[in-house]
Design a protein around this nucleic acid. Structure first.
Lengths: 218, 218, 218, 218
DNA sequence: CATGAATGAGGGTTCATTCAT
DNA sequence: CATGAATGAACCCTCATTCAT
C-alpha cells in the first residue's frame, strides 16, 4: 500500500485534539487564562486557528477540557501509585509520592489546575472541586482504615476526619506548586516533608522523632 | 453588608485612594490581574477612570499598591494576635487564629496575595516575596524557640522550614474554604483542626492524643 | 451622483495594504502624525481598525511605511523626469518640472515628507534623511557636472550645497502654494519663475537677462 | 502701608500672560500642537492650569495667540533691521540677516510659525499667511525699487515679481529651519548662502562670481 | 484669585471569533 | 479540510477642560 505523505499530515481528530490540548495546557499554565491567546495555542499546536475552534468550540471550552483532562490524569496517577495491601502510612506515603511525581512531571498542567482554574468563575471551579473531592475521599478512606486496622478508635467524628483530609490535600497542593517553583526541590523531598508534617506532627519533628520513609527503589 | 453611597462630594486624596484600593482589591481578587478592568475598578470605587490613573499611575502600580497594603495588613494582624510570652504551641495557635480571622474577613485581599500575585512575574514578585519571608520567619522563629525551650535541636534546614510554611498555608486555605462550605463548621473549629494536624500529627491524633486547644474567650 | 460602493469583497493583502497606505498618507498629511487617528485611517480605507494593525503593525510603522513609499515615489519621479544627456540647466529645469508635477499631484504625500516627517524624532529621521540625501545628491551632481563642463571649479562645500537644496525646496514649495492660490498662474509658470530665480539670480533678472526656458510640449 | 509678600507672587495680568505664552511657545515648538499638553505649559509657566484657562481661554486660543505674537515679533525684527537709505542689495542683505538672526534667536517661535502652524486647519494657517504676505510685500517693494533705481526696466510683469518674492521668502523660511536644525550653521552663513543664491544665481555662483557680502561689524 | 478634585471623550492596541475561498 | 481575510468589542491610558472650595 502506498501512502502519500503530505507536508500537512492529516491526523485523526483525536490525535489533533490531543496536540491542541497539550499546547493549550502549556500556554494556559504559563500565561494564565486571560493572558493566553488562541493565536499562541494554535501556533504552538502547529495548526490553524479555525481548526482549534472547529474542534474545541471556544476558549472557555478549551480551558474546561484542559482542566478535566489534567484532573483525570492526576487522580489516575495517584490511584495507580498506591498498593492497597500495604499498611496505611506506606499507602499515604506512596500516594503522596505519586502525587508529587505527577505534578512535577506536568508542571503546567498542575498550574492550570491549582492556580488558573480557581481564578475564573463557577464553570472552572466546579471541575477543580471535583478533583479535590476525589483526593479528599481517598485520604479520608485511608485514615479511617488506618485507625481501624490499628484497633485504635481515635474517637474522631467523621467531620473532623474530613477536615483533616482537606488540610492534607490543601497542604499537598500548595507544596506541589512550591516545589515546582523552587529550584532544587525534588518530588521525593516534597513528599517526605509533607509526610513528616502530617504523620508525625510538628511536635514530634522537633523532638527528633520523625516518621521514617521506607527505603524503596526509585 | 456593603452599602454603595453615591457621594458626589469631593473627598481628600487619601480617602479617595483608599476607596479605589478597596475596589481594586475586590476586582483583582475576583477576576485576576489580567481579567480585572480599570473601568470596573473605577465604577466600583464610584469615581471616573482618569482619577484612578491620576492617583495610582497605572494598572501595575495599582496592583502593586494593593499587594503591599494587603500584605502589611495581614502580617500586622498575625503579629498583633500573638503574645510572645506564651509557650510555642499557644503562640502558633494564636497566630493561626489571627491568620484565619483576617483572611476570612478579607477574602479578596487574601486571594490577591495568595493566588493572583504569584501568577505575574517580576514587578510583583518582590512584594509577595516580602510577605512570604515575613510569614516564614514567623513560623521559623516559633519552631526554633520551641525547640530551644525543649532543649532539642530540630535541625531543620531553612528550605524545609519554608516548605512547612507553604504546607501550613495551603492547609489553612483549604480548611478555610471547607469550613465556609460545610454547614456547622465555624472558623474556630477549623483552626483547631489545623492546629491538631500541624502540631500533633496524624499518628498522635489517631492514637487518641490530640493537641488540646486552650479555652479562651472568642 | 456619487454611489458609495460597499465592497465587502475580500482583497489580497497587497491591495489592501495599498489602500490603507493611501488613506494613511491622506490622513497624516492633513492632520499630522499626532493628530491622525487610526480610526480615521481605517474608515477612509474602508476597513476595520484591527486589519490595519494586522497588516501594518502600529501607527509608527504605518507612518514609516508611508514616508518610505512617498519618498521613493518622489525620487523616482524626479529621476525619471531628467535626461542625463542634456546640459545642466536643462536637467535642472526638467528635474524641477518633474518635482512640481509630482508634488502637485500628491500634495498629501509631499506634506508627509516635508512637514510631518521632520517633526517627529528618531524613528522617522532615517527615512527622511535618505530622501534628503537623494535630492541633495541630485543637485550636487548637477552642479558639479555643470562646473566641470564649463571648466570651472565651483568649490562649494558640501554643507553649502545642502543649504542650497534646502532653499530650492523651500522656494519651490512656496511657489507651488502661490501658483495654486493666484488666479491664472499655472504650474509651468511657477517652475519658470523658480528656474529664473535659481539659475540666473535676481541681478541678472533685473538687468533683463533672464534664463530662457526651452520650448517644449507640456 | 504694610505689604505681606506671599510666596506666590501676584503679578499683573499682562506679565502672567507673557510667562504663559513663553512657556507655550516652547512647548508647542518642541512637541507640536497635538503633542503639547496644557499641563506641561502650566508647569513650565509656573502657574496652575485653571489660570491658563482663565487668561487664555483654550488650547486653540493659546496657540493662536502664540502665533500672532511670534509673527509680529519677527516682522518687527526684519523691518527694524533694514535701513532704507542703502542700495537695494544691501537692504536685502540686511533684511535677510535680521530674519535669520531672529529665527536663530527664537528657534521655538520659528518652529511654531513655520512647521506647527501650517499643520492645523484654517484658523492658524490664516495667521501665518498674514506673516508671509507681510514679508513678501517687503521683498517685492525692494525689488521694484531696486530695478527703478538702477534705471533698468527688467520688463517683468508685476505678477512675476510677486512670484520671485514668494520664492525668496519660501527659500528663507526653509533655510531658517534648516539652519536651526543643523549643527554649526550660523545665521550669517545662512543669510550669505541665500543672498548668493538669490542675487547672483547658480550660474554666477558656479562661474566664481558670487555676490560679495559687505564687511560689517557683527 | 488660586488650587486640588474630578471627568467626558477619544486614541492606540489586542483578542476571541467568524467567513469565504 | 485548511487557511487567509476580516471584525466587534474591550482594554489601558491621556488630555483638554471644569468646578467647588
Amino acid at each position: 500500500m502506498v501512502v502519500v505523505v503530505r507536508t500537512t499530515k492529516r491526523l485523526p481528530r483525536a490525535e489533533r485534539e490531543r496536540q491542541m490540548m497539550d499546547a493549550a495546557v502549556q500556554v494556559f499554565g504559563r500565561r494564565g487564562y486571560r493572558g493566553a491567546s488562541m493565536d499562541e495555542v494554535a501556533e504552538l499546536a502547529g495548526v490553524s486557528k479555525p481548526l482549534v475552534y472547529l474542534y474545541l468550540k471556544s476558549k472557555e471550552d478549551l480551558f474546561t477540557a484542559c482542566i478535566r483532562r489534567e484532573a483525570q490524569a492526576l487522580t489516575r496517577a495517584v490511584r495507580a501509585g498506591v498498593r492497597r495491601d500495604l499498611p496505611p502510612d506506606r499507602q499515604l506515603w506512596e500516594g503522596l509520592r505519586a502525587f508529587f511525581r505527577h505534578t512535577a512531571d506536568h508542571p503546567d498542567g498542575w498550574t492550570v489546575l491549582h492556580v488558573q482554574a480557581r481564578t475564573h468563575g463557577e464553570p472552572f471551579a466546579a471541575e477543580v472541586a471535583a478533583l479535590r473531592a476525589e483526593l479528599v475521599s481517598f485520604v479520608t478512606q485511608l485514615t479511617v482504615v488506618a485507625a481501624r486496622a490499628a484497633h485504635r478508635d481515635p474517637d474522631l467524628p467523621e467531620r473532623e476526619v474530613a477536615g483533616l483530609a482537606e488540610a492534607l490535600v490543601g497542604a499537598a497542593e500548595s507544596l506541589a506548586a512550591w516545589a515546582n517553583a523552587t529550584e532544587g526541590v525534588c518530588a521525593r523531598e516534597a513528599a517526605a516533608t509533607l509526610m513528616n508534617f502530617a504523620w508525625a506532627g510538628l511536635d514530634n519533628l522537633m523532638a527528633g522523632r520523625p516518621w521514617t520513609p521506607p527505603a524503596d527503589q526509585d
